[in-house]
C-alpha cells in the first residue's frame, strides 16, 4: 500500500447481537462484515449504499464510537484497534465527525460559542479564554456564520446554518480526517449546494481528507475522488468517481445508478429494476449477498462469496469478472 495512506481499514467486522436475552443469542446482524479499504491524504472517499448497508456503522467504527469485533484501523500509521476509551479520546482530535441531523447533533441547551469552545477546552486546556474566543470567531467566519450569533442557541438557526456550526465544531481542532455522515441529506436542495461548496472549499484550504457517507449518488459524484459501494455489510465495488459513473462494474452499482431519478424529463433511459427488497441483514443470502436480486446471477453466486479484485483499475466483488 502507498505510504501516503492516511487511513487504512483492514478486515473490519461488527456484528450486533440480535437478542440480548439471558439465555438466548438469536444470532447476529452482520452490520459490517470483513471490510477493507484505504484513504489517501487529501482525497474524498465516499461510502454509498442504501439504508442498513452498514455505512454509518463503519463511520462510527473508524471514529471509535463503536468498538469493532475484529480487524484493524490504522490511522497515520498507528494501529488504533484495541485501544481503550481514554486513548480513543486523544485519537479523535485529528479525526472529527459531522452528523446527518443538524437539529439533533447540537446540544439544545448550549450557546453557539460554548458548543464551539468545548473541543478547545478538552484538547487545549492551556489556551487562554481570549485565544479560544478568537479561534471560535475565526472558525465561524470561515464557515460563513456572522460572529454576532455567538450568544444564540442552536434552535434559533435554520438547518443549513446549524450544519455550518456542526462543520465549524469539527474543524476547530484542525483535524486531518473528517468523517461526514450524510451531512447534507437533511437539507433542502438550495442549502445542500451551499454546504457542499463549503465542504469543498474547506478541503482545498485546509488540505482535509474526507470520508463521506451518503445514500445520494448525485451528491457523492459531485464531491468524491473515490467511491465505495456497500451492500449488506460488504463493499461490492471501489472505483475512482469518474469510472463508477461512466462504467459501473458491479450489477448492484449499475442498478443503483439507474434508479436515481434524473431531473430532466427529456432523458429517457433503460432502467434496471431490481426485484424485491434488501434482504434481512440478520439472515443474508449465502454466497454473494446480492444474488437474490441480481439480474445476472449464476449458480456460483449462490454458493461462493466473491472477493474484491482489480478489473480495469476498479475493484469489484463479482463473479462476472
Amino acid at each position: 500500500m502507498a505510504a501516503n495512506n492516511l487511513l487504512e481499514v483492514k478486515n473490519i467486522k461488527k456484528y450486533f447481537p440480535l437478542s440480548k436475552g439471558w439465555f438466548s443469542a438469536k444470532g447476529h446482524v452482520k452490520a459490517v462484515d470483513q471490510v477493507s479499504f484505504s484513504i489517501q491524504r487529501g482525497e474524498t472517499f465516499s461510502l454509498v449504499g442504501e439504508s442498513g448497508c452498514g455505512k454509518s456503522t463503519l463511520g462510527r467504527l473508524i471514529n471509535g464510537l463503536i468498538k469493532s469485533d475484529d480487524g484493524e484501523i490504522i490511522f497515520k500509521g498507528k494501529n488504533l484497534t484495541g485501544a481503550n476509551e481514554k486513548a480513543w479520546r486523544s485519537y479523535r482530535k485529528p479525526m472529527q465527525m459531522i452528523f446527518q441531523d443538524p437539529y439533533a447533533s447540537l446540544s439544545p441547551r448550549m450557546k453557539i460559542k460554548d458548543i464551539l469552545d468545548e473541543p478547545l477546552k478538552i484538547h487545549h486546556p492551556e489556551l487562554s479564554k481570549e485565544t479560544r474566543k478568537t479561534m471560535v470567531q475565526e472558525i465561524l467566519d470561515v464557515c460563513g456564520i456572522d460572529a454576532y450569533h455567538l450568544d444564540k442557541y442552536a434552535h434559533e438557526f435554520s438547518g443549513g446554518q446549524r450544519q455550518r456550526i456542526g462543520i465549524a465544531r469539527a474543524l476547530i481542532l484542525k483535524p486531518e480526517l473528517i468523517i461526514a455522515d450524510e451531512p447534507v441529506s437533511a437539507l433542502d436542495v438550495s442549502i445542500q449546494a451551499q454546504v457542499l461548496n463549503l465542504l469543498k472549499e474547506l478541503q482545498e484550504n485546509y488540505q482535509l481528507t474526507y470520508l463521506f457517507i451518503s445514500h445520494d449518488l448525485s451528491v457523492v459524484e459531485h464531491i468524491s475522488d473515490k467511491i465505495a459501494v456497500m451492500y449488506l455489510g460488504n463493499i461490492v465495488e471501489i472505483s475512482p468517481a469518474e469510472d463508477i459513473f461512466s462504467r459501473p462494474k458491479h450489477p448492484y452499482t449499475q442498478a443503483l445508478l439507474s434508479a436515481v431519478p434524473i431531473p430532466n424529463p427529456k432523458v429517457k433511459r433503460e432502467r434496471i429494476m431490481l426485484k424485491g427488497e434488501i434482504p434481512n441483514a440478520a439472515n443474508p443470502p449465502k454466497g454473494c449477498k446480492f444474488h437474490s436480486r441480481c439480474p445476472h446471477a449464476m449458480d456460483i453466486c449462490k454458493t461462493v462469496e466473491p472477493q474484491l479484485k482489480k478489473v480495469e483499475g476498479q475493484m469489484v466483488a463479482c463473479h462476472l469478472y
Binding site: 449546494a193 459524484e221 434524473i262
Partner: peptide
C-alpha cells in the same frame, strides 16, 4: 431556474455547485 441549477446531476461533475444565497 436556481432550483434546477443547484441540484447535483449525475454525469455532470462540476467543481462548484450553483447555490442560491440565503434562506427561505
Amino acid at each position: 431556474k436556481d432550483l434546477i441549477e443547484s441540484v447535483p446531476k449525475i454525469g455532470e461533475r462540476k467543481s462548484r455547485l450553483y447555490s442560491i444565497p440565503g434562506h427561505v
